[in-house]
Design a protein around this nucleic acid. Structure first.
Lengths: 151, 151
DNA sequence: ATTTTAGTTCTTTTTTTGCAGAACTAAAAA
DNA sequence: TTTTTAGTTCTGCAAAAAAAGAACTAAAAT
């Protein structure tokens, strides 16, 4: 049976998922599943708890859960003697999540260095500027990653 | 008349725009316009240079340019005696760009604090954990913003 | 005064995404 | 052995996003 959510819980789910959709371009159903795990009274929910509470189809629920598992934002475990999985947040390794975001930025800086190298040689100042910026952004990003590792 | 791009330039445009589309969810035409400004031999291009080189319609070009202007990733100026605008990258204020991204994260941390406050009181450890994480993420993010300001 | 330039805005078409629903599957329970 | 549980996978559709094309506009040039 579906969980009964208080009005404030519903509102928070809306706020969280709106943020995730707009800022991180997380797809709606995925955002709502994640949000539900933040606000539900029980921090561990089953497939059907999620499906029934959010009024999603099985396929949408399955997809959303598998996406969240893949990016390691949630995890599951079994309770002894039970078949179904209990899903919960994994945000407690949030440094890892932030680190991944930073790593992605580093890739972009590499592309920029490639650009600086391959550009026409007729614009040396511009090329140099791109290279400097790539290196500078890279240094700062590395520093951020270090900062996260210490946390 | 359209610019003639070397094969390596085309490949770089593809790499840059693919990254922007996948990691930053920038829409295709916008990503390509930005990419073109990185790789074109001339760092300043007109509306029609862009339109013809990327084979875009006027409306798509107009939209893409205006979006990039709005988020301050590009800027334009006029050459004396000429009517058309010359667009160029503004990535040289990249710290500002990164700062904006970080500021957005802070909003999410605020929502999390709200969650911790509004959750059921029956899971004090879980609530406390959310609060601690929000505060911790916030501190580190602020530190990153400071790091960017120094750069 | 009218034509051209450098775009913008509106409408339509195309493409992509997100989800529902049904059919399917593998393991466990009865 | 068959039935149930706990999902997954496939097909199709509706809505939203992205871009095209045409009509429009304001300033400048002729």
């Amino acid at each position: 049976m579906a969980l009964t959510l208080r009005e404030q819980q519903v509102k928070l789910i809306e706020r969280i998922s709106a943020w995730l959709e707009q800022e991180d371009h997380v797809q709606p159903a995925v955002a709502r599943v994640l949000a539900l795990l933040f606000v539900s009274d029980d921090p561990e929910l089953t497939f059907d708890d999620i499906r029934e509470t959010l009024l999603l189809s099985k396929s949408a629920t399955s997809n959303a859960i598998n996406m969240l598992l893949q990016v390691e934002l949630i995890e599951y475990h079994h309770r002894i003697g039970e078949r179904k999985r209990y899903f919960r947040l994994r945000i407690f390794e949030w440094q890892m999540i932030y680190k991944k975001l930073m790593q992605k930025r580093l890739e972009f800086h590499s592309i920029l260095r490639e650009v600086a190298k391959q550009r026409t040689q007729k614009t040396p100042e511009f090329n140099q500027k791109i290279l400097e910026i790539a290196n500078h952004m890279d240094k700062v990003t590395q520093e951020m990653i270090r900062l996260l590792s210490e946390s």
